[in-house]
Design a protein around this nucleic acid. Sequence first.
RNA 1: GCGCCCAUAGUUCAAUGGAUAGAACACCAGCCUUCUAAGCUGGUUACGUAGGUCCGAUUCCUACUGGGCGUACCA
Length: 563
Amino acid sequence: MDTLHKIKTAIRQAVGFDLDISYPPTSELGDLSLAVFALAKVKGQNQVILAQEISQNLEQNKKLGSLISDVKAVGPYVNLFLNYTNLGAEVLTEIKKAKNKYGQNDSGLKAGVMIEFSNGNTHKEVHIGHLRNICFGDAITKLLTTSGYKTIPVSYINDFGIFTAKTLWQYQKNQKQYQAMKGSQGYILGTCYKDAVSALEGNDASKAEVTRIMKAIESRQGEYYKLWQETRLWSIAYLKEVYQDLGIKFKKTFYESNVIADGLKIVSGLIKNNVLVKSEGAIIANLEKYNLGVLPIIRSDGTALYPVADLALAVKKFKENKITESIYIVDVRQELYFKQLFKILELMGYQQKITHLAYDFVTLPSGMMSSRSGNVITYRELIDESIANAISETKAKRADWSDRKIKKIATEITLSTIKFEMLKVSSRKTITFDIKEALKFEGYTATYLQYTHARIMSISKKSGTKKTKADYKLLSEPAEKTLIMKLAKYPETILRATEKYDPSEVTKYLFELCQNFNDFYHNVQIIKSKTTVKAARLELALAVGQIIKNGLELLGIQAINEI
RNA sequence: GCGCCCAUAGUUCAAUGGAUAGAACACCAGCCUUCUAAGCUGGUUACGUAGGUCCGAUUCCUACUGGGCGUACCA
């Protein structure tokens, strides 16, 4: 149990009631605050008088003596001042000991959880919408892991949808043009898809051709199937490249084309059971009596729709893995679809926990992204532009660095920035992605955190090797107390972020921690103070560095030592 | 039409039903012979409207207004 949790538990025990313990709006009021509203109601007592009573009791409680330095009743609140010598010593010792494990907890009880994310498609572009999914999924995986779940991150690549036929239709007609293009083949296919969408608009004859191509692919014979096989690998290689850039690792990868046969078997079984029925020439699931409308499963031309593979995959996940929960990270627009899918699985007899973890999509200042209108920022465009910008910024600020070093740091800054921008907005909200804003390195940005981390590393380097034992009593400046309290709050922040599936709790915490550190840095001398004071302050600074590193790690971001 | 989500400062975002609604960006004025100025300090500006529940509502409920998304053969 972490220090702060211990203190809170001791206070609750002393009061004898499970009171809400919060933090006062300003540190002058205290470090912890008990709101007595609920207890006053239970006891039928006046709030202010009760607060005074509790305050007196706590003051006389000897067990709390080492933890609390003062208690003050303020209206309906009991405000507590912590014993910082004690708190600082405990927290800093804990961080020094646990290092990268500080903040971990075992609330997950080693339960197996499979997390599907990334939503990759072959024969399509990778854009910043996918990026949010990938960053969010990776952060959720890391949060669950740090909270004691056994996580199995998996990616599911859609390589068998109608869009593959659209892309191949376009590619076939203009092979020379596309073959002449620069860039990786997978990226070119993405361009090809965009072109296909606009070429097909309002073009019924061509749409019929696309249907024929799709049927040919599904038959797994002939020229189009061969072309599909070949191009599919281009896209898969490109997706791998993207994952590698971002440092994302999956334990397994599933492909739609590999599970669809099983899906068709399941579908025919479900038709026999009347779970699925024929209607208007198509096979559908009629879920109207559950208020979930109708889900088409097989088109009237006989080709399979998305749920066919998804049903098989859902079954396969439980069959082949020891998991108690299966999580799907897919954007909020598919909420109804997943309710429908889960309902069908329930009708099939599956009772395991299946969760759709929705997040809102990414939009641009110019409006919704759409392949049709060409209003899309692709992953490649974003990365290229961002790195170029980071290189020129770094060059301007670090004129003495070698080109190689500048490129290395600029790339790290870029990746940090992209991930951080995707995670700092709560998942329930649309991200209006303004590339101009995202290229900035000031304020609430990854660079601010990285800069603070690098600053701490630099101080550490310059501090020399002489070891003096730190005396935590010497950490008595207001800025030092604020930092100690903030460090103490890290474990509960991680827990809350996990429970809420909300990485933005972590980004917010880290930003505030860095603000606190920079305040400390500008007000207090570290290296130049007396050896005893220096030792204590240095340890505090290193603890902050450790937490920045730990927190960034949860966001899939590697801390930079020099920037 | 029906369903889901959103509405806070000029902009982008915060705030377990609780104390004076916080940041960042932008704008203005300052701070480097001193541990990294990608930093710090100071200044201006906000809860869409109308009700309800509650000791107390930005937060919960209802209606309205505005925006987004979904709603049978896209994924």
